[in-house]
Structures are given as structure tokens and as C-alpha cells.
Amino acid sequence: MKGKPFFSSVVQKLVIGITGLLLCGFVAAHLAGNLLLYSTSDRYAAFNKYATTLHDMTLLPAIEIGLLVLFVVHIGLTLRMQFQSQKARPEGYAVQKSKQGRGALAARNVMHLSGIVVLAFVLLHLADLRFGLRFNEAGLAPAQTVLQVLRDPISAMFYTVGSLLLGYHLFHGFQSSFQSLGFGGERLTRIVKIVGILFSVAIAVGFASLPIWVTLLRK
């Protein structure tokens, strides 16, 4: 067929789902590392050792490029999808009400908004800790740098809100990804939903706990 698009809307959603799940894996690994910060003994030795080992990895640049690709594909295809959907309904309804309880602010309806906030959070986070654009005091141990960033009120606020909204994004995103991948059946769907809720809550609470902990207890 001529003029046929390279991939269908179904495949597009599949790729958004796969990249989303891979990013979930990254986020989980990232959180596991972060939680080492709670081990304060010996001047955060556990966290410092983990951070130094990670930064010295030869494969790190390759992993970073891989992550960048995941982000770009996930966001790029979502924007494309959003654009197509907006075109699909040029004129909206005067009144619109869900038949599913919980209204317009349900996670499933605000994925683009939660996604934008998470993206802004990730960019600030990269500026803070990957590129050291706002804090670049030399000679600090990794844990000290992190604490310095988390003591900054702007970062602390943004990191808390960003983490919570990331959890909200995953509240729909996690189970939705599996649906896009074609994981069906009543039992499996139920399991995926429960795991998704637990996962998103763990991510939100886990990440947001750090800036709150630092702000309240580690002045």
C-alpha cells in the first residue's frame, strides 16, 4: 500500500509502553541506590561507595545514551500521539462526564501534565547533580553533594512534587504499559494492577522521602 504510515497507532502505543516499562526499571534501580543515603554511619560510606563505583563504570556513557534514547522515544511518540488525538476531536464537548467515577483529575486523564512536571523535575535534577550547573563545589564526597542539593529549598520542593507526580504518572502508566503490550486475562490484569499500585506508591514515597527527610532532620 502506498502512503501507509511506517507503524500503526497500536505499534506506536506498544513502543510507548515498552520504553515506559524500561524507564520504570531505571527508576527502581535509581531508587535502590538513593535509599543507601539512609545509612548514615561512617559519613554515608555506603552511599559514597555506591556512587563512586557507578561513576567509574566504563559502560556508564553507553547507559546514559541508552536512557536518553528511552526518554526521547517515550516523550516523542507520546507527543505525536497527543497531537493525533487532538486532531481527532477538533471541537470538544460543552459538557463531558466520566462514567467511571473519579473525574477529570484521575491519573489516566492527566498523563501529559504529570509527564511534563516529571520532565521538568528530571531536567532540574540533571542540572543539579549530573552537570553541576547550580552547585559545583569541588572536593565534596557524593553524599555531601546530594545533601547540599537537597537542602536547597527550590530543589527540595521540586524533587518532592516531582517524585509524587512521577508516582501518579506510574499509577496509570505501569498497568497501561502492560495493556499496550497485550497482557490480558482477568487474573493477570488484576495482578498487574495491584503490582502497579504498589510500585507507583513505593516510587513516590521512596523518592519524596529523601528531600523531606533532609529538610526536616538533616539541617
Binding site: S9, V10, Q12, K13, L14, M81, Q84, S85, K87, A88, R89, S98, K99, Q100, R108, N109, M111, H172, Q175, S176, Q179, S180, L181, G182, F183, G184, G185, E186, T189
Partner: peptide
Amino acid sequence: GSCTNTTECEAACPKGISFSNIVSLR
């Protein structure tokens, strides 16, 4: 437009067509 798994369709369907058909279609 493109399906984003909100299952609003299933709730609106007068014949109760299950959303699981969409997952099966994938």
C-alpha cells in the same frame, strides 16, 4: 485518535463490550 487505556469506552458502551478486547487486539 489513539487509545490510551483509560477504559472510558467500556464504561460508555451500551452493549458492555469489554476493554479486554482491546488488549486482545494488541
